[in-house]
Design a protein around this nucleic acid. Sequence first.
DNA 1: TTGATTTACTTAGGTCTCTAAGTAAAATCA
DNA 2: TGATTTTACTTAGAGACCTAAGTAAATCAA
Lengths: 198, 198
Amino acid sequence: MPIPKAQSPTTDVVLRHWREAVPNDRLAHLVKDATRGLVRALTMRLAEHRVSFGHWAFLRILWETDGLTQRGLSLQAGVMEPTTFAAIKAMEKLGYVERRQKPSSRKNVYVFLTPAGRALKGKLVPFAEGVNDIAVRGIPAADVAVTRRTLLAMIENLAAEEAASQGATRRMPSTRHMGRLVAEAGNGTRRRGAQPNP
Amino acid sequence: MPIPKAQSPTTDVVLRHWREAVPNDRLAHLVKDATRGLVRALTMRLAEHRVSFGHWAFLRILWETDGLTQRGLSLQAGVMEPTTFAAIKAMEKLGYVERRQKPSSRKNVYVFLTPAGRALKGKLVPFAEGVNDIAVRGIPAADVAVTRRTLLAMIENLAAEEAASQGATRRMPSTRHMGRLVAEAGNGTRRRGAQPNP
DNA sequence: TTGATTTACTTAGGTCTCTAAGTAAAATCA
DNA sequence: TGATTTTACTTAGAGACCTAAGTAAATCAA
């Protein structure tokens, strides 16, 4: 077998070093790479039906419970409102959902599937299941179960820890935080700070 | 202490529905949420030392093997060159690395740690270990081992599958792909082709 | 040795997610 | 009731990652 070319580094090289010793502090990277693989596989399949990976999560919630508010969707999806907002707006343009307001409240925006959005279910769910099958192929079901349980426990542990240290010193850095630091450090002659200099 | 507010949904609500039935097709989301938790925890800690999560991966490689090219770094990190490029540029401005070219080749760019960059190791590695400890707290070591092995197998399965269907129908959609679709669908008066099913 | 190909770095721009900072509407309270 | 707080949606903008499309240097072929 001639082995085509070198085949994309992205999907290939990742493997290389995971096989070797995986020190204790690298669990995060392992989990992250698994995420990338799964997201990638699903993204490629979803794209065939004009659905982005970001939309997928919301579609699935809506198939289950139509007519939620954007806030409700955010909670269910476990993402922040701006994320939901952008996704729903795009999905509205694509004709998968409708945003409606009830006369009872002009504040809330309710999201409903269109027939097109609902029709996607039959096509997309099999893809997700297919990707899942590929991912766990050859892995004992028991191991998958353990993995599932372990990941859940990890999520809980981390959330608990973050909640416990609430309001304490550590917070999630602002999106501009690093940008500012880099800009400061970079602007010639690291003298003082922050010259936005014209 | 009046308990600030209701505490961020991001880190909290995620848990809610994972406890309930987790259908088979949701492994991807579970893995993704675990990634988020880990990345988040590490990001917060790294920020205290002017290091972003994106830089972390490269720093760790450089502590191990100084003087790699950007390409080499990309391979080791398992990311594409533009990602590396941006990160290294920022780290250069922050004074953690230096980019140098050897007279033997004016094409390759070699990346070297500065003393400041090297000094970070002592501070940052404990953070990573700390996050790891928090994440796996209370979980049997055997389970963590199984999880590690399972995730690795999943990564391999997915990479193998993608390699197998190389050049075939499915490819990763271009970054502009969805943007175009949304724009088309959106651009006034969904008269023509915008119909969901042609 | 010249032309074609490959390699390594860059630039452009897009997705997804986030924090921060509005802006209105709704709910609560004094 | 009117003033204050809370809620829900928006807008802005950044970071990490990606694909696509350069550009210049190095290597290979004829």
